[in-house]
Design a protein around this nucleic acid. Structure first.
Length: 215
DNA sequence: TGCCAGGCCGGGT
DNA sequence: ACCCGGCATGGC
């Protein structure tokens, strides 16, 4: 937790996820799979300009047409298929309005998401936290990289192992999980990318591994 | 120029 | 239970 405070002081509130609506966040979560966010923005802009950034819009479009619009995000054929699968399920489960999920337990939603082809744990959790405001800590490549490098993780840990670790160490708060993960991405992008030297001003540099294990 | 980016799936061992 | 190839674009 003190670790979060340090990052937060250094970077300021990150205001994540970039996206105006829950649906846009869902789409972004799929498009950003192993892909630079800048490319995802172009793809989303294309969908928006075409007036197709809606559950019905995606649902009604043939895959080839979606692929053409999301081209800049890479893996466009795969992602077009994944988007359709997700949107189809989304419509089936809530009629395309996530407010209808209000009474559905997070665990159930997570299972439902993971059952969709093309939605793995990180994508599911990103949707749960950033689109639906559920208390699920998102683990990603940056999380592993940063916390490995500083000795909090060994590297072999399973995704859910890491997620549960964070969730049990932190106060259960969606806004906290939200900004914490955003902070990790901020520090990961800037200073902890592979083969890139760490910035001297990085708050993580001031922490000894292990000293900060408890919130 | 080559490497990297906010993964996931399917098939093989 | 791991390990690997495939999927593709744009930026530095």
């Amino acid at each position: 937790m003190a670790l979060y405070r340090a990052l937060r002081t250094h970077f300021g509130h990150r205001h994540w996820w970039p996206g105006e609506t829950p649906f846009e966040v869902m789409v972004g979560a799929v498009l950003t799979q192993n892909t630079n966010w800048g490319n995802v923005e172009k793809a989303i802009l294309n969908l928006k300009s075409a007036g197709k950034l809606s559950p019905r819009g995606i649902d009604a479009m043939p895959e080839t047409e979606i692929a053409a619009l999301i081209r800049p995000s890479g893996y466009f054929n795969v992602k077009a298929r994944r988007l359709k699968s997700l949107v189809r399920r989304f419509i089936e489960k809530c009629g395309g309005d996530e407010r209808n999920f209000r009474r559905v337990p997070t665990r159930k939603l997570r299972e439902e998401l993971l059952d969709v082809n093309g939605v793995g744990r990180e994508t599911a959790d990103s949707i749960l936290l950033y689109a639906l405001g559920r208390r699920i800590f998102v683990v990603d490549a940056y999380t592993r990289r940063v916390f490995c490098r500083h000795g909090f993780l060994r590297g072999g840990e399973d995704y859910d192992e890491i997620r549960v670790m964070f969730e049990s160490l932190l106060p259960r708060s969606a806004p906290l999980y939200n900004d914490y993960h955003a902070q990790i991405v901020a520090v990961g992008k800037g200073y902890c990318a592979p083969r890139r030297p760490r910035c001297a001003g990085c708050p993580l540099g001031r922490f000894k591994p292990r000293a900060e294990k408890t919130k």
